Amino acid sequence: MRFTATTRTVAALGATTALLAGIATATTAHAGPAQPEQPPQAVKSQAQTWEPQKSGKVASVRGSAQIFYAYSANDTIRFTVDAKSAPFTRPFDGAPKGLPTDARGTLSFSHYDPDTDTDKKATAEVDCLVTGGKTATVSAVIKETGEPDRRIGISFQQGEKGRPDRLGFSWGVANVHGLPGGGVGTCLAPAPFAPVVKGGYKVVHTELPPLPDGAIPGQYS
Rank of each mutant, 00 (worst) to 15 (best):
E125S: 12
D117M: 03
D117A: 10
Y112V: 04
T118R: 11
T106R: 11
A124Y: 14
D113A: 10
G105E: 04
T116L: 12
D102F: 06
L107V: 07
A122I: 01
L107E: 04
D117P: 01
R104P: 01
E125C: 06
V126W: 08
F109E: 10
D117C: 01
V126G: 10
C128M: 10
A122E: 14
K120A: 15
D117R: 11
P100E: 09
D119N: 15
G105S: 06
A122D: 14
S108K: 08
D113Y: 04
D117I: 04
F109K: 05
T101C: 10
R104K: 13
P100S: 05
P100K: 08
F109D: 09
T118S: 13
D119V: 02
C128V: 00
D117G: 01
T123G: 04
E125K: 10
T123C: 02
A122R: 06
T118I: 07
D117L: 05
D127A: 05
V126N: 11
K121E: 14
T101V: 10
D117Y: 06
P114D: 06
T116R: 12
A124K: 14
K120Y: 12
K120H: 13
D102W: 00
A103G: 08
R104F: 00
T123I: 12
H111Q: 03
T123E: 15
D117S: 05
P100G: 05
F109Y: 07
S108R: 14
G105T: 03
D115V: 04
T123K: 14
L107R: 00
D115I: 03
T116G: 02
T123P: 01
D102V: 06
D113K: 02
T101S: 12
D115Q: 08
Y112C: 03
A122Q: 14
R104I: 08
R104N: 12
